[in-house]
């Protein structure tokens, strides 16, 4: 047929004609080595690689799950701690308020007492002062009466009258009192 001449020419050109894929003489060799390769790959994958990778993936997902759970737990703990902190803060604030109020009340009481004491002292002082003033006033009145009596006696005698001590005293006393 036509292919014979073609193949002869191809052989002369240094390469075999036709598709190497259709050269059935090499099929046995190819299929043998293919099966060997596939069996080796299958065994390696089936018994070494895939269980290992599968285990690693499962491990990782469980680690992630655990870590997430732990993180959630820690978050809850943090929230609880915050709550406790806030409660403690509130309590401390209330305590501080109470102490402040107490102190204030104490100070007020002290102050009231001191004020009362000061008032008493002031009252005593002013009463004493008033007594003294009254005394001085009384003293002054007496002196005025004395001076008026003397002055009146002198005036009466200067005018030529006879000074009656008793009546003059009575008149001056009445005038001064009036």
């Amino acid at each position: 047929m036509a292919t014979e001449a073609h193949e002869a020419a191809a052989g002369a050109a240094g390469h075999s004609a036709g598709m190497p894929q259709l050269d059935t003489s090499t099929w046995g060799n190819q299929i043998t080595w293919l099966l060997v390769a596939l069996v080796v790959i299958y065994l390696v994958l089936r018994f070494v690689a895939l269980p290992r990778i599968g285990a690693v993936l499962a491990d990782r997902s469980s680690t992630i799950t655990n870590d997430l759970a732990a993180a959630e737990e820690l978050k809850q703990k943090a929230l609880a701690a915050e709550k406790a902190y806030l409660a403690a803060l509130d309590k401390a604030r209330a305590e501080a308020g109470k102490i402040a109020a107490e102190t204030k009340a104490e100070i007020q009481a002290e102050l009231d007492k001191e004020i009362a004491k000061a008032d008493v002292q002031i009252a005593a002082k002013s009463a004493e002062s008033e007594g003294r003033i009254a005394e001085i006033r009384a003293g002054a009145l007496e002196a005025v009466t004395e001076v008026a009596k003397d002055t009146a006696k002198e005036l009466v005698s200067a005018l030529g009258g006879k000074a009656d001590a008793r009546s003059i005293t009575a008149a001056v006393t009445a005038k001064v009192k009036g």
Partner: peptide
């Protein structure tokens, strides 16, 4: 080529493996 011979097919399949 016999079925057991080492050919370029063998070599490149081994490389694949």
């Amino acid at each position: 080529i016999e079925w057991y011979e080492i050919t370029n097919v063998t070599v490149w399949m081994a490389a694949t493996v």
